[in-house]
Design a protein around this nucleic acid. Structure first.
Lengths: 249, 249
DNA sequence: GTTAACCGTGCAAGAACGTGCAACTTCGTG
DNA sequence: CACGAAGTTGCACGTTCTTGCACGGTTAAC
């Protein structure tokens, strides 16, 4: 096991789980805890994580350089993103919708997982290319000014030619009564078309979406495979949602 | 075992396993570790991988040639961009290639000109949407890691369905003998396909491209409608180019 | 306050490294 | 064909880096 590779592994665990336990990793990789501790110390010196008793944690947002903090999602979105990334199997093809939560997902995508990421959003496409080694396929079409996503007839046609395992759907409203809603009619149609071409569809439900309703219906709650929510979210609406859809937290 | 053959083998292992362990490969191929180390060092010098203690790893995504974002447009590029934008008629449909010069064009696009801008580059798409009121159409396909442009079979197919008045082509080499060249084979094919679907093609020739030659031929000089160069550029090569193509400055 | 887990440091063994060198091959030239 | 130049390869050498262990101090938990 190469030292550099070990560090990559540590970074990945940190991104996936939000923490690193030195002892566990040492046992996992079959090396001494000393080596892990040394790696963690070096990564901490490089400013990539903070060392704590027993392992390491990500750098708290407040301590990060400002340029990083500006483009950061809220903590709720980051937790949802982490949970969602955990659903991605190796060697799979996934579709990432536009949105801040999916953008947060791009930062915690696993390396070396042989992923293909399809997206209608130029922003997401660039972010995936920058942060991971996944193949990136962009769906063409006219950019909707509303959401900066390819939509319209060109996009609808492009969608007909794709197929994927998972679709991570972003909406602006998730409500037990009104279902999944978003603000733009074209976008809603594109989202539906993508969902129809994917084996499973998961909705990303960060805090502020739960219980909200927008103008354009996208899908019914029972039309999706699951709803990924913030584990820390205690909203009672989630209980009501759970009666109609499988809730993952 | 030839050195070049060995290097191919190393590249292959790196792609397959995501790492190379010098000792293992040496044993596998029946050559000394020294030779493997030499090969790895050369591949690292060529920027194909990063050398680490014990072997080598792929280049981390963050360090790849993302010249688009990093480098600001030089003054030469800005003058070329301004001259090129002057060629755009009202109510037209144009294709903007990827590149820093086209990126500079997005900042000086006219407002209220009822433009449609088609592009295979997510970066350009976002820039156009931000700086102008043009309709933006993005060409889908697999993102080439080299240039962050949609290319490959999907892009080729998407290109067949478009039509435009003007194509502003970006290349990395413009030479009287070798013609128009770029660094990536797939990209070159995409550029050719786009040019075939546009009434006119103009090449953007900022200073550093004039007289330069890259590996992959894109088009002959006489296959394009014109070459837009920096009015301040006094390179004698431009004279030689003018014999084969109409030069606009 | 006691205990067990965790930490940092120093150290020695081993692995990997770069360099210089000699033997060998390849290639171009006379 | 002969010859020399240039390149490649493996080996030897000293150097650097990594690793696991031992030891004593520190921290968290009970």
């Amino acid at each position: 096991m190469l030292s550099a590779q070990r560090k990559d592994h540590l970074r990945q665990i940190l991104r996936r789980d939000g923490r690193v336990v030195a002892k566990d990793v040492a046992a996992d990789l079959g090396v001494s805890e000393d080596s892990i501790r040394r790696d963690l110390r070096e990564l901490a010196d490089a400013g990539e994580l903070v060392r704590v008793y027993g392992g390491a944690l990500p750098i708290p947002p407040a301590d990060r350089p400002v340029d990083q903090r500006a483009s950061l999602a809220t903590e709720s979105k980051e937790r949802v993103a982490r949970r969602a990334v955990g659903l991605i199997p190796l060697n799979s093809t996934i579709v990432l919708d536009a949105g801040t939560t999916t953008l947060a997902m791009t930062r915690v995508l696993p390396h070396g997982a042989d992923l293909t990421v399809i997206t209608p959003s130029p922003t997401i496409a660039l972010a995936v290319a920058e942060h991971s080694d996944a193949r990136v396929v962009i769906i063409g079409g006219e950019l909707s000014r509303f959401s900066m996503v390819a939509s319209g007839p060109l996009a609808m046609e492009a969608v007909q030619h794709l197929a994927a395992d998972l679709f991570f759907l972003g909406v602006t409203g998730i409500d037990p009564v009104h279902g999944l809603t978003t603000g733009n009619l074209d976008d809603a149609a594109t989202k539906r078309a993508i969902a129809a071409r994917c084996t499973q569809t998961y909705v990303l439900g960060s805090e502020e979406k739960i219980g909200a309703t927008s103008r354009c219906p996208v899908l019914d709650l029972d039309a999706v495979s699951g709803l990924v929510v913030d584990p820390h979210d205690t909203s009672p609406v989630i209980g009501a949602l759970a009666e109609r859809v499988s809730v993952l937290r």
